[in-house]
Write a protein that binds this DNA or RNA. Sequence first.
RNA 1: GUGGCCAUAGCUCAGUUGGUUAGAGCGCCAGUUUGUGGCACUGGAGGUCGUGGGUUCGAGACCCAUUGGCCACCCCA
Length: 430
Amino acid sequence: MENLDTLTGKYGDEGDRLIFKILNSGEYLKDIRISLNAEKPPVKPESNTVLLSELLHEKMLSPLICEKALRYDLTVPFARFVAMNRDKLAFPFKRYQIQPVWRADRPQKGRYREFWQCDADVVGTSSMINEAEFIRIYDDVFAALRIPVNILLNNRKILSGIAEVIGEPDRLTDITVALDKLDKIGRDKVEEEMLAKGVSHQAIELLSPLFSIKGTNNEQLDFLDTYLSTSETGKLGIAEIRQVLAYFEANQAKPLKQAKLQLDLTLARGLNYYTGTILEVKARDIPFGSIGGGGRYDNLTGIFGLPGVPGVGISFGADRIYDIMEQLKCFPEELLGTTRLLMINFGGNDELAALSLVHDLRAQGISCELYPEAVKIRKQFEFAEKKGIPYVGLFGEDVRNREKPMIELKHLQSGEQTINPIQDLHTLLL
RNA sequence: GUGGCCAUAGCUCAGUUGGUUAGAGCGCCAGUUUGUGGCACUGGAGGUCGUGGGUUCGAGACCCAUUGGCCACCCCA
């Protein structure tokens, strides 16, 4: 996504017409004035004009001037796809998808207006095996990337159960959103926020055992068994979590490679469509937002006309993962430079000979390049030095026209320079 | 969406209560080395101080507006 004025005027009139222009988000009507005399624009801005927002509420105008929107995530468009193609898909249906999504947020560190998500989903099955498999995927991927992570696990049904048990079933969202901030702002502030949202003192009192809950995943679940014993929904949630954990406990021979799977009853997640399991991935010991999230949604395709198809999926936040990897210095130096050999360009016939050699070497799988201009040799060497190219090749008339064609090869790090037959290059450069 | 901070050379920044020709480091270019990099030394180019207005004898500095960026909250990947 670019600013509009970056793009306009560069592609001609036709191009300007074909550029998607994005309406400002927020109160974009706030300061827009229109003329009451449609024939002529007003001379002074204030005279004979009226605030557009006084004539038309934004909610009324938006549908008239705006019908397209940028993807907010990959899950909802996927649900639409599933609903549209229900007759062609074999259920349970799995897919992965890697694409950019957009949020009309103010960008800042770790927070982008446009970023890439990597999604994997399964629809058409309620089995907790899927949850277990997705947790494996998280573990495999972050182990491969060498990022230590905690996978936080919770269940919306448990959160619903909590709201029920404390007598505030209608304030589920307010309660969970506040609870989610427990580790950030502390218990007092959480209670304060709940009160402000209209949660009763009595309900907050009932909530208090949750604030001090500690222990292993199973100890927490044991506590919930009694705490939520009067909520059918809550008990269902506990059973689901137990089932997910059981797939790991019953398979001790294949433990998670490095991820820690932690039950976190304060995990809420903002997306409304989740109905069961919710997951969030955080880099361990690094204060940074989540780098992955997901959960179960039992009726997302329902809004597109295909009810009764449960699904579950996860997402990787590619840009944040990249940020973390830079912070942890996970990118190996040797990946930064790819070219093994830079051929010096002497111009004229020397250039043609070097270009031809470069093509031959590439055919042999040697990554090499010819400096594109016959500028000063010094400059070409500096270029190789800066790019970290280990070898420089000099293919002048004197060496290449020998009876057995030769090339001068300089190893920059050692400064050693030798004359070699060109057919030896592929072994020298390994 | 709410609040705070910032904008000066390609980059990172300095610039005193408003006062001559706006500086530094790095980078860039050239030379010491006309086919040899790193290191060093010498010299050079490069800025309408984000934009528009105002205050003033005088504005990079003060005031207003505007645009862009950063950060926190909210929320989230």
